[in-house]
Nucleic acid binder design. Structure first.
Lengths: 371, 371
DNA sequence: TTGTAGGCGTTATCAA
DNA sequence: TTGATAACGCCTACAA
């Protein structure tokens, strides 16, 4: 009878187990378990005794053992392209906040937008039996055997920022089409006529959506689409820098950049070429950060609700984990155009008539994002 | 005999276990285990059979079960104040890179520099039996029972950015004293005479070190220490903003700010007061970011090797986990002064004689930090 | 209400 | 080399 042996084992230097507590309080492990988990009514007397023993032994349930028994780890995996890309920290933070609130932890992985790393991470997370996965999918498809594994383990995925219907329809994204559309329209309203784009990798859904928003806005504003002003980047600084050189050589008077990192690259290129913003070209970019309000050029941006994005994604995932089998949803959060100076709007209206600028709440906007 | 029952169970919808593989390949679980872990020599024949079964069943070892048996999770916990503070993503990235390389995963927690959240996270991480913890300690001490638990479970901690000898002497930090010293000296060399400080919470080691560097530099440069120019913040934007208002009202001509977020707050305050940098006050701050090179004022900063910090911390931790019992070490990484324009150095020398500016590698510095 | 005896999926110890 | 079986620490029917 193994139980006897177990009860009899020395608690030596190891941390206390449920058996030690049971022994010390002269009850069965069941009773201890019941007390710990507030289940099944345990008599006043025994409960007190057990609680005392727990305190005395400084007992903490071993969650690994519990996970094995329960088939639940209360851990969720999160795979992002790169936590060092300033877009993601706030998303991760949102996810962690929500996870924490619901008693979950976050296992974080970086994929560098690379299929190889992504697949490795997914495999590991599955092997570690996370209860669900938050994923910002890289461009390429999973290999079949991984697809198979994912099917088998049958844990929920929720996509973040980018859709990928082949895996799941559950996703929390931003309305990228609208954001890009607004950005480009604003550039047009600021008097820009030859508007260029530095976009993300066309293969990922949000880059595609931003590109479509760009083109449709051009059309709506009656502006020409010039292929040489349409450049595809990869959301990183370097690509923005190269794209900037290529694009600026054609002297557009307006540029929409699909994320912050590429904007940094573009500005560096502009500087090297002696071009100034907003005097020589208007600029609107995606992603807003608290510090953009204090540096020049003051960037006009399309802010995406990063924190909220993480929260909603995690909460949806947790609902799925809890067994919610309702129809898959794509939750689309609305972006917000933050007009500052890089678009040259002020320049434009002052040449024209009225002057409407920086809508209110400078300080609150500054503080909003970082507690 | 339970084994018989187990072997006999239907593999139904569940994912394949080692028993299923054993059964399918007509060997014992031991043999399967040996094959999976490349241990103990398994005969060619059996190995082939087992491998075939593994492939056929798409078998992946359950790492939870393995962890329970091995008493090792290959997971490390990392607690940072706030991943949304732009300082930490690169540190976390470094840690994740190193962890990944050594077969570890990262469980990420945010403490908001709050003892309550920090303690909760530590407890949870211990219960989840992480193999070690990377910690940027909040100011206050752990409560005794937690101290006790930490002692008992006996897992290694490595401190990141801040020392806290009561817990462990193992730490990977930056030479904050030197960084602050260099910053202030540079301000002085740029002709600033009344230099103020916006520092971090004096109770954490790095804020203290930066403060000492500040004071010693003042002394070395023969500059007066004016108490009203010495303000303590908490590393967040808001505190920099408030400190900025307070500080600037005394019209210092130079300011050293102990981190980037507070610098953002300060600049906002300066703007509200109509003060300009570097014309009205010189500025040097900590933390450098790729985008600081393209916005104005171009910030002169003291860059800390964030990525390296994460790598070294994780590697030290992993060495400890592996059983390295050598003497505790405090690894101190060297900061690097990056001279740009906010200190007014160019202003100063051009009023004077020569002109030595932005030391080389503009582009490489830009790209260095983000791949 | 409380106790007993598997079972969760591995690894590891002994025999064979 | 292989196999049987006891841990690992917890949960939970089923019994008492």
């Amino acid at each position: 009878m193994s139980a006897v042996k177990k009860v009899g084992r020395k608690k030596s230097g190891k941390t206390a187990s449920i058996y030690d507590v049971a022994k010390l309080s002269r009850v069965s492990v069941f009773t201890v378990s019941a007390v710990v988990n507030h289940k099944s009514h345990v008599g006043e007397k025994l409960r007190k005794r057990v609680e005392a023993a727990i305190r005395k032994l400084n007992y903490r349930p071993n969650l690994i053992a519990r996970s094995l028994a329960n088939q639940r780890t209360h851990t969720i995996g999160m795979i992002v392209p790169d936590i060092a890309n300033p877009f993601f920290p706030m998303v991760v933070r949102g996810a962690e906040d929500a996870a924490q609130r619901h008693g979950y932890n976050l296992l974080l992985c970086n994929s560098d937008d690379t299929l190889a790393k992504e697949e490795k991470s997914v495999e590991l997370l599955l092997s570690k039996r996370v209860d669900g996965i938050l994923l910002t999918k890289a461009a390429e498809d999973f290999r079949p055997s991984l697809r198979q594994m994912i099917k088998e383990v049958n844990i929920p995925f929720v996509l973040v920022m980018r859709t990928y219907p082949k895996l799941t329809k559950d996703a929390v994204i931003t309305d990228d089409y609208q954001g890009a559309y607004d950005a480009v329209c604003h550039l047009a309203r600021s008097g820009r006529r030859r508007i260029g784009l530095i976009g993300g990798p066309r293969k990922v859904s949000n880059a595609q959506a931003r590109w479509e928003g760009f083109r449709d806005a051009l059309k709506a504003e009656g502006l020409p689409y010039e292929p040489e002003l349409d450049i595809e980047g990869d959301y990183r600084i370097e690509s923005g820098f190269r794209a900037g050189h290529a694009l600026l050589s054609h002297r557009p008077d307006g540029i929409y950049v699909a994320n912050h990192l590429m904007t940094v690259g573009l500005l560096k290129a502009a500087e090297e070429m002696g071009l100034r913003c907003p005097e020589d070209f208007g600029l609107v970019s995606f992603d807003d950060y608290p510090w953009l309000g204090v540096f020049r050029p003051r960037l006009t941006t399309v802010e995406l609700p990063k924190h909220q994005l993480g929260i909603e994604a995690a909460e949806l995932l947790i609902r799925r984990i809890a067994g919610d089998r309702s129809k898959a949803v794509v939750k689309k959060l609305q972006p917000e155009l933050r007009i500052r100076e890089s678009c040259g709007f002020a320049l434009h209206v002052s040449r024209g008539q009225s002057l409407e600028q920086e809508p209110g709440n400078a300080k609150s906007a500054l503080v909003r994002d970082l507690r």
